[in-house]
Amino acid sequence: MTCVQKPSSIVKKAVMGLTGLVLFGFIVGHLIGNLLIYAGPEALNGYALTLRHLGELLWVARIVLLAAVGAHILTAMSLVRENRRARPTPYQFQDTIQTTYAARTMAVSGLVVLAYIIYHLLHFTFRVTNPHLSHLTDANGHHDVYRMVVFSFQNPWICASYIFALTLLCMHLNHGLASAAQSLGANNQKWEPRFKKAGCIISLIIYLGYISIPIAIYTGIIKAVPGGHL
């Protein structure tokens, strides 16, 4: 009954936590897929092909993700609006005690990451922004994801913007992961510091995993033709 009416503050927090965890699951899965680039073109292109052949399952995943993104953003907007309204007069002397930079910039980091994701999809999924790099085919006649990624990250701007967006994403995760535990009621005195530490370590691992790829490409560790000069 309570949920049918205007959702309460606690329900909204739980929605943020749950949808955040779904998106976190995607981020982990996406990273594992991406890391296949280190195994060479066959592995990455083969993985991409498998994903495309998932058919209906792929659509289920896409719909779940889109719903989670939508609910995450809409709830966040409502929270931000209400929170601004809750303190109409700001303090003249502003200070904080223990909050973090990541916590205070969740809305901004979320918005920048959203904008980047739209660009990222246009780049690698819809293949609109760099068509000359993203419509190549491999020896088997399949879409050459490997060379698309390598050629893209040889561009310093694409490389830098990716690392920048990932920095914000992992800052967002750092606060988000520990927050999800608190908002969903999993926290207690014993686990609070552990969740905080876990959030920090997990987001750092994810960060290093993701940014290692553009760095490896830009510095020539990963080449367009493995063993070749490019």
């Binding site: 309460s8 503050s9 927090k13 929170n83 809750a86 223990q98 916590a103 520990a178 908002s183």
Partner: peptide, 19 residues
């Protein structure tokens, strides 16, 4: 919680400044 929301307090975003 309903009364708390009706009284126009904000929502927790886990800054832990309260503690």
């Amino acid at each position: 919680v309903r009364t708390m929301d009706e009284e126009n307090f904000g929502n927790c975003t886990n800054h832990f400044e309260c503690e």
